[in-house]
Design a protein around this nucleic acid. Structure first.
Ligand code: MN
Ligand code: MN
Ligand code: ZN
Ligand code: ZN
Lengths: 152, 152
DNA sequence: CAGTATACGACAATGATTTTCATGTGCGGT
DNA sequence: ACCGCACATGAAAATCATTGTCGTATACTG
């Protein structure tokens, strides 16, 4: 009748590039570093577009997110597996991130939501620790593996 | 011998005031609103001091923290019960927050940490939803109970 | 191909939190 | 009680990831 039914998701070169760059990364990346990676790679894309695209992907459930535990709560993104969201155990030192099995927590969340009677209950679960390579020896502390973002 | 052993926590009037104001609040409060409450109450205290004190309390494990889910990740604080930390189900609309039973999750975290072999594993678990009073009716949506921070 | 709703990007604005740094004060030692 | 100094305080400036603005470009429908 009136408004023409238009698609709500335009496939544009920038968005394709952002998504591709995201998949090319190991583990979690921030919007900023993803933008840097793109520019370094010769892809002309604005920082705003990277932020906007990541937000869209987040809303569409195509990425998992973890937030830096310190002050500004910086956001890090990772492509989400097709079969549902994951939760991660992240090394505070080197950024190594591992998806963990979370059936138990998912059930717990559902039970709590049902018992208390809240609607549209969403959940955030983040584990942080130190991996073997980063364990602080009293004397012989070795250099960290790498900066951020390995994944298994 | 050399360095004099000094206490690592000075009891000062401002810190006492901040802690008291925190206990006087229902539910979670931000550093900013806690500062406003203090000043309104006639207590002369700087915003920096409120932030610093809350950080200290956090590090000492005397408060529980939840972070706003949107961009800036604003932090909200609540006095922690003596018998250990809690996790909360918070209403996105009115801020009503309820401590939930989380034995199951605590055990899950311990198991994951042990299985994967990370050390000093810490965890963040936050539940957000909509309480009964805030449920969005298709037609008759009623005004929200109150702004932020009730607790049960 | 035209029309328009949407995407883009350079740049400014936001806003919670941190840092600075000059000054005040708790507290251990005497 | 008095000193001395490490730590606490606060007003103001800095930080900085993220979002808003708005003029221009472009994807998509017809
Ligand atoms: Mn989950
Ligand atoms: Mn817990
Ligand atoms: Zn590590
Ligand atoms: Zn509510």
């Amino acid at each position: 009748m009136y408004g023409t039914a238009r698609s709500e998701w335009r496939t544009t070169p920038r968005r394709a590039a952002v998504l591709e760059a995201l998949h090319a990364c190991d583990g979690f990346v921030s919007a900023q570093s993803l933008h840097t990676a793109l520019v370094t790679d010769g892809v002309a894309v604005g920082l705003s577009t990277v932020y906007r695209t990541l937000r869209l992907l987040e809303a569409a459930g195509h990425v998992d997110v973890v937030r830096d535990s310190d002050g500004d709560g910086e956001r890090f993104y990772r492509p989400r597996p097709d079969d549902g969201h994951r939760h991660y155990l992240v090394c505070r030192e080197c950024g190594l991130s591992l998806a963990v099995e979370s059936e138990e927590v998912e059930r717990w969340v559902a039970r709590i939501a049902r018992d208390i009677g809240f609607h549209s209950v969403d959940h955030t679960v983040e584990l942080t620790g130190m991996c073997d390579g980063c364990r602080p020896g009293p004397v012989d502390r070795r250099p960290h593996p790498a900066g951020r973002a390995r994944v298994v």
